[in-house]
């Protein structure tokens, strides 16, 4: 089996062309990045607002759990049937949303209360507090939320191929239909590889974005995105 997978992957004919690995990987990546970005555009400001004002925090939990409980495949096919194949993209956005939202909210919530109190006491306006204190310190958990969302969307995009969305899932499903198990297995491996690669890129981005002083706190207390995720 391993040699068959290797043979499939090493065949240059499988990589090029409209149905090739390269193009499908590109599509896969494109859908995922689009979905997470679209979700982030709404979820990050909303999470910042909820974390900053403390209003509507119940919403974050309720919404997060509701979306988590949705059957992924049902959501994807449902939307695709109602509209068109590309509506599955909307499903991906919906899926990415709660992870980014709760990460952002948790990030703002985890900013040391005394730092926020000091910011208020020294005369920062509400907006200055948000931009100068809360956002920079929320970044580790916020980026953790984005990474969570990305992994989830990566996996779900594979399923979205059922409703005609391209991506590496397409190779997997086709392989199943024509009982080419080497192709199925190869596609599965490629999806996993792509997910790991993208996560690595996001990890690098996190390092770039999170201020050094905050990184030091994370390293000291283990209260970074990973530490928190394990606690849940």
């Amino acid at each position: 089996m391993i040699s068959e997978i290797a043979a499939w992957l090493l065949d240059p004919a499988h990589w090029t062309g409209g149905e090739g690995v390269l193009r499908q990987s590109w599509l896969h990546l494109l859908y995922c990045v689009f979905a997470v970005c679209a979700a982030a555009v709404i979820a990050i400001p909303l999470g910042l607002y909820i974390g900053h004002t403390g209003r509507g925090s119940v919403l974050v939990v309720a919404f997060g759990n509701a979306v988590r409980a949705l059957p992924t495949l049902g959501l994807v096919t449902g939307l695709a049937m109602l509209y068109q194949g590309s509506a599955a993209l909307a499903a991906l956005v919906v899926l990415a949303f709660p992870a980014v939202l709760s990460g952002t909210y948790a990030g703002v919530n985890a900013v040391p209360a005394d730092a926020v109190d000091a910011a208020r006491g020294m005369g920062m306006s509400s907006a200055q507090r948000l931009w100068q204190v809360e956002l920079p310190n929320a970044l580790p958990l916020l980026m953790g939320g984005v990474r969570n969302a990305m992994l989830q969307v990566m996996a779900t995009t594979a399923i979205a191929a059922y409703v005609g969305l391209g991506g590496l899932g397409k190779l997997l499903i086709e392989g199943q239909a024509i009982r080419h198990y080497d192709q199925m297995a190869s596609a599965a491996i490629l999806i996993a590889l792509l997910a790991v690669l993208v996560d690595l890129v996001l990890a690098g981005l996190t390092r770039l974005l999170v201020p050094r002083g905050v990184m030091l706190v994370v390293a000291e207390t283990g209260a970074g995105p990973r530490g928190r995720r394990e606690q849940r």
Partner: peptide
């Protein structure tokens, strides 16, 4: 106005409340 008032008053709290992200 509160923000303006506070800028003119020094404020020190128990845990110092330093901003972790700033030097």
């Amino acid at each position: 106005e509160p923000a303006r008032l506070r800028r003119g008053i020094g404020y020190v709290i128990q845990q110092a409340g330093l901003f972790p992200h700033r030097t």
